[in-house]
Amino acid sequence: MHPDAMVRGERVPHGGEPDRDLLDFSANTNPETPDGVDEVYADALETARRYPDDDYPEFRAVAAEFVGCEPDRVIPTPGGLAAIRLGIEATLEAGDAALVPYPSFGEYAREVRLQGAVPQFLRYDDLVEARTTLLEGVELAVVCTPNNPTGDAADPDALAALADRCADAGTTLLVDEAFLGFTDRPSAATVVDGSTRENVLVARSLTKLFGLPGLRAGFAVASGELRETLETGRRAWSLGTPAARVGAYCLRQDAFVAGTRDRVASERDRLRHALGQRFDVAPSDAPYLLCDVGDRSVDAVIESAREDGVAVRDARTFRGLDSHVRVAVKDRAANDRMLEALDAKSAAAVSEGDENSGRGPIRDGSETGNEPDE
């Protein structure tokens, strides 16, 4: 990182509610974890009396199988954000430019700036369609799929085409797939042929899908010279033994993943219909929904929910959003409590068929200094 940028830099806001008495709908994590995790963690904790194998062969093999690539392309990292930082560190120098989506995760711009580089904001869906002439002016382009906070996933063919244009422009493409595991869409690690496209970096997070955000486990996927750079640059013992063991175990739980996807899809449709009676709710492929509260006060909506014991996400910190909240998709009982707190529970019983399919307005990113966030 660039020393001056570290001095000038700031933290960015994220979801996650510290008050344990509140039901947290501000963070997009699975409320369930796979059976058997406790035992795996306890066994790994005893093994943690010695340093882990820095090659992480089991973790690499299972992670590679999960996304559909070769094990030697996997770079273990302590969470998806660590993979993002590693990729940005390997790609950008002071003064370089990076194409960053909005509204989207705030750490992209922050990490770019920490390298002394300059983020150039482009609406997230326009970024996927960015032409070669635009890409030629940047060293890095970032895509989040499904995008956070809007929830829509990029078309795999469009991503592959973007990777081709990035290669022609000499631009590295970083694809953040933190929430892709909640869908059945293929990873860019599979869609983009790593043997021919060595300019693509995929960042994956395990902890959201498996309900263990405090474990900090994830990985990057890359090929060729970029892969070698990431492997050399990653920290020694990138994953603690518990994170590596539990992560590998979770990635093998196919039934848990399938059940989670079914539950999220079903509950997301129900919530979108119910919330759509009060708000303008964006379509989503992710375990969260972006709601435009319209003329209502965002502060009042958030405070009213808190008074009823539920924390929802203030989405105004995302660049381009000024009247939005974001809510996670949890289990049915918790979701009903959230609907009640937002005065939308009665709508949940209404038969579907008149589902709101509108999307709230997303402003031009130049209109606000707000940054995207998790």
Rank of each mutant, 00 (worst) to 15 (best):
A265S: 14
R245Q: 13
F256C: 04
V264I: 15
R270P: 00
A274F: 05
P242E: 11
L251G: 07
T241F: 05
G276H: 09
G259E: 13
S266I: 11
A243F: 04
A244G: 09
P242G: 13
A265T: 11
Q253S: 08
R261P: 03
E267L: 13
R245L: 08
G247S: 09
Y249A: 07
D269M: 12
A255P: 00
A255E: 15
A248Y: 00
A244H: 05
P242L: 11
R272A: 13
E267I: 09
T241V: 15
R270V: 15
L251I: 04
R261I: 05
T241D: 12
L275C: 11
V264D: 08
R263C: 07
V264Y: 04
D262E: 15
F256H: 07
R263S: 14
V246W: 02
G247F: 01
A244F: 01
R261L: 05
D254R: 10
R270N: 04
L275W: 05
E267N: 10
R263I: 05
A243E: 12
G276R: 07
P242T: 09
L251N: 09
V264P: 04
D254I: 02
F279T: 04
F279L: 07
T241S: 14
D269S: 15
F256T: 02
A244W: 01
E267Y: 05
D254P: 02
R272Q: 14
V246C: 10
R263K: 13
R252L: 03
A258I: 02
A248Q: 07
F279A: 07
H273C: 12
V257H: 01
A274R: 02
R278C: 08
R270L: 15
A244I: 03
S266D: 15
R261M: 07
D269F: 03
L271K: 10
D269W: 01
A255F: 00
H273L: 08
P242F: 09
G276S: 13
A244V: 03
A243P: 06
R263Y: 02
H273N: 10
G276I: 03
L251F: 01
R245T: 10
E267A: 13
T241K: 10
L275D: 10
A258Q: 13
V257K: 02
T260Q: 05
D269R: 12
D269C: 10
G259P: 02
V257F: 00
H273A: 14
H273E: 09
A244T: 08
A258W: 00
R270D: 13
L251Y: 04
R252K: 08
V264T: 14
D262F: 04
A248V: 01
T260R: 05
